[in-house]
Design a protein around this nucleic acid. Structure first.
Length: 419
DNA sequence: CGTCCACGTCTAC
DNA sequence: TAGACCTGGACGG
């Protein structure tokens, strides 16, 4: 659950689940984790969370004790400790009973209850990490969701930086300026403004003001009126109803946070809400190609002038399996189309200590990402989404010829924006 | 069975 | 600017 919204939802989840809960003892780390041990022990402590961009900070706060002496003597903490987490591609928090520990639980906090419960940092791929006594990672910019003003200023006042020499879609993943934006958000944001992904970031951003003039205005759609006088563009073309690019970097992620109001609960939610919200990322009929870093960029229409020369669209087909196990919003399907599999896991097998001497590395080298990038440069350079080439040239965002059908293979309707 | 793909950083040539 | 770091699901043969 990796982008800004998911990290924030994770912090909400922790605060909600741990409110009033007392934890005790030391913090346990899985055998396989390479992240640092957490040197914290307390007879009674509480846990709260906060998020900033793509990081979550847990604060462990020891509760007051009547006998400070004992506490100190026992090596107990008497001061709060912050632990800063990054989620990698698959991290999330989960609060369960002790016998329901999720697989891949790599850091655990135990409650003081009789049958105790456990707050786990779960991370299947282990790309995530944490730092005890940590602080927000230096170098990461202001949060796109909750530090909007400074986020804007940071971008606008640094447009001369080389980071903006790149295509806008790649600049958007630079956490020094867009802390919280990830692969699905960049696609959704650029799609809404009809900005070709591979146009220079600087050209798209220059002219934007460090202040968001729309901030206090109602997001009303007075399109007709505005469009007419748009001829004398005061600055760039500011999408009347939605705001400029920087504003969408703020509002689009917040839409995810506010979605359904169900909040973060890996057990109850259904992924379909999030899936239905996506307008571009992984949506049938959209195009996709790999950017200069090998990341898949989803978009519609013109890719823009800075397209990687070799880039080819990844297997655009068959990929959008409806029921995949994504959980960006940390909402997992309840028990939907699950092929009835007696899921009564009682004994969760813990990580298998893989101390394998990494031999298969060589064998895989040829099939790794490297190959992926190079191997596909053939096949005409047309960055078209395969069969997606249905009419729809230029920005004729007018009446879409219902090209790629309205029905996706996942049964989802490809909503045609409302712009 | 093997290949490709995934919400992201990190760090070595 | 390539890999490296990981697990696992979908799909192809």
């Amino acid at each position: 659950m990796p982008e800004g919204p998911e990290l924030h939802l994770a912090s909400l989840y922790v605060n909600k689940m741990c409110e009033g809960v007392v934890f005790t003892g030391s913090v346990q780390k899985s055998e396989v984790s390479k992240s640092p041990d957490v040197p914290f022990t307390s007879d009674a402590y509480r846990i709260t969370a906060a998020s900033r961009g793509k990081e979550v900070k847990l604060t462990l706060t020891p509760m007051k004790s009547d006998e400070p002496k004992k506490r100190v003597k026992a090596g107990q903490a008497d001061q709060p400790m912050d632990i800063v987490f990054r989620f990698g591609m698959s991290g999330f928090f989960r609060f369960t009973s002790e016998d329901q520990l999720p697989k891949h639980s790599h850091l655990r906090f135990y409650t003081k209850e009789k049958p105790c419960r456990v707050l786990s940092f779960v991370d299947v791929r282990r790309f995530g990490s944490w730092q005890p006594n940590g602080a927000w990672q230096p170098g990461r910019g202001p949060c796109i969701m909750f530090e909007y003003k400074s986020f804007r200023e940071n971008v606008v006042s640094n447009l001369s930086n080389h980071a903006f020499d790149r295509p806008i879609c790649e600049a958007l993943l630079n956490q020094k300026y867009f802390n919280g934006i990830g692969n699905y958000l960049r696609a959704e944001i650029l799609f809404r403004l009809d900005i070709p992904p591979f146009v220079s970031a600087r050209s798209v951003l220059e002219g934007l003001d460090s202040d968001d003039f729309c901030e206090n205005e109602k997001p009303v759609k007075q399109e007709n009126a505005d469009k007419k006088k748009s001829g004398r563009a005061k600055q760039k073309k500011v999408k009347e109803e939605s705001g400029d690019l920087l504003r969408l970097c703020h509002t689009v992620p917040l839409e995810v946070v506010n979605q359904g109001g169900k909040g973060y609960d890996p057990e109850k939610q259904d992924y379909s809400d999030f899936e239905a919200w996506l307008q571009c990322y992984y949506v049938e009929g959209m195009k996709s190609i790999r950017d200069h870093n090998g990341r898949t960029m989803w978009f519609k229409g013109d890719p823009g002038p800075m397209v990687p020369k070799d880039a080819k669209s990844p297997k655009a087909k068959n990929r959008v399996k409806k029921d995949d196990d994504h959980d960006y919003t940390a909402k997992k399907k309840v028990n939907k189309s699950r092929p009835a599999k007696a899921t009564k896991r009682t004994a969760i097998k813990q990580e298998t200590e893989t101390k394998t001497p990494k031999k298969g590395k060589d064998a895989e080298k040829e099939t790794g990402s490297k190959r992926r990038k190079t191997e596909k440069n053939q096949e005409g350079n047309t960055p078209n989404g395969e069969k997606t080439s249905t009419a729809r040239r230029r920005k004729d965002k007018s009446a879409e010829p219902v090209t790629s059908g309205a029905q996706t293979r996942s049964g989802r309707v490809t909503r045609q924006s409302s712009r």
